[in-house]
Each structure stands twice: as structure tokens, then as C-alpha cells.
Amino acid sequence: MNEVILYTVLSLTGLGILAAAIIHLVSKKFAVQEDERIDKVEEVLPATNCGGCGQPGCRAFAKAVVEAGTLEELHCPVGGNAVMKQVAAILGINAVERDPFIAVVRCSGSFEYRKKTNIYDGESSCKIAATLYSGDTGCAYGCLGMGDCVDVCDFEAMYMDEKTGLPVIIEDKCTACNACVKECPKDILELWPKGKKNKRIYVACLNEEKGSTARKECAVACSGCAKCFEACRYDAITVTNNLAAIDPEKCTLCLECVETCDVRNIITVNIPDEKIKSATDHRIKMEERARKKKEEEKLAAQAAQQQNGDATKQA
């Protein structure tokens, strides 16, 4: 009996040692040499694997950063400048500051403004509805309202507002990972610079149809009337295909355009109403002044003409 136990113990021990030796050899032989810095960089990354940086996951990003040796083209939108500073410190290279972005919803056609023209009864998915037809309202450019963007958000930074039927972005949670932008079949969502002190303005409409048609489809559609374009003193607003758009790089947040819009579809975020009002007052004042100046010039010109006329008469 004792012998049996002895042999068993011995043979099992032997087997164990053999296996350990094999594993050791294999791990030596097939060891993958990886830059240690990759692990270090990965550690400081947010580990959300959202793909917002354009790389398939955080480790891939770390690898890419280490290989590139520069931060010119790589940026983790979720971690932002703070994380990128840490990454730069690990790699001993210069950090590149980038302005943070946020997703914005470029449609304000809520139930109230945009009447349904038919009832969609397929699978509840914007992507599928978009392959079928232009949508259950007259507007072929607007939000389909089935929340594919909400489903795809990894950060719970979005929800569908049941009253308006439009997605809402929660400012503090959005990391600008680009997932919703990629998902939306109508390209309603867009990454927008978060702005200084989180202040930003944008046009919440994408309808490129003629003004009258667009307004028939949606009460707050941009009709391309170009009033905002005329009000802008910084060339930040362009009107193409009956649609106004603000260039965030040129916009100085002077806010003078905001109230020129008939349907108030220039959306302002984190900007108090008084500021808009004072900007509007300023614009009106300036316009008044300009008009007065014009009138004065006109009067002066008339006076000059009269003088000339008198002169000729005298002559």
C-alpha cells in the first residue's frame, strides 16, 4: 500500500516538474518582445476601448503612440489633454494640446415642429429606416428618432427626449468618442469644439431644400434666408444649398447672429440670455448707426447735388 502511494507521489511530482520545465522553455523561446512603454501608456489611458481615437482599442492606441514617437496625429478624446500630458511624460516627448470636442445634435425638428407624414412600422432602428425611405416626416434630412446613437453610446452620455423625439447629449459625460457620429445614418450628430468655458453656438438644421419646401416640412427648418450671414462680421457663417452653417474656427461668439434667425434655430449652449440680448441690442445699435450714417451720407450727397444744381443754375 505504501509503495503505491510513494510511486504515485513520485510520478506525479516528476510529471509536474517536467511540465514546469516545458512551460518555462516555451515561454523563453516564444517570448514576444514588446516595448515596456506600451504597458505604461496603456495604464494611463481610460481603458474604455471606444475607438474614438481611430485605433481599435486602448492598447492599439498605446502601441501606435509608442511607434510614432510623436503626439501630432494621435489624441485620446476621452482622456483629453490631461491624459495626453501623462502619455507625453512617459514617452518624454512634447505634449500637444487640443481643444476638447463634444457631440452636438444638428436637428431641432421635434414632434411639435415636424409633423409625421406616415407611420413607420419596421424594425425600430434608424439605420434600417434609412435604407427603406427618407423618413416618417416630410423632412428627408432630419433625425429619425429611433435612438441608434443612444444605443451605441458607451458612456451613457445620451438619451432620447420623449417629448421632442430627439437625442439629448449630456454635457459632462460626452467624451467625443465619435461613436454616435459614425452610427447616425442621417449625419445629424457632429463633433463640435466644446468652446471656451463650454460656450458654443451652432445651426441645428441640415435641410438643404428650398426655403418654402423646408418650412412646410418642419416649422424650424433653416430656409437659407441668409439673415445670419449678413449679420456676421467675421465671415464665420456660410450659406450653401439653402442651409446656413457656422464655422467654429472663425466664430468669435459675438452672438449677434443668434436673434436674426426667424425660427431661432441657432442653438446657444451655456450662454446666458442677457448676453444674447445685449449682443442683439448691440447689433441693432450698430445697424441703426450704419443706417443713420448711410442716411447722412445720402443727405450729404443730396445736398452736394443740390449745391451742384444750384451752382449750375447760377452759372
Binding site: 409625421k116 407624414t117 406616415n118 407611420i119 413607420y120 412600422d121 419596421g122 424594425e123 434600417i128 435604407t131 427603406l132 425611405y133 416618417d136
Partner: peptide
């Protein structure tokens, strides 16, 4: 009322 639209 409105017509229903769904994929085939």
C-alpha cells in the same frame, strides 16, 4: 389617418 410604411 396616416399610412403605415414598413419594409417588405
Amino acid at each position: 389617418g396616416l399610412l403605415t410604411v414598413s419594409p417588405s
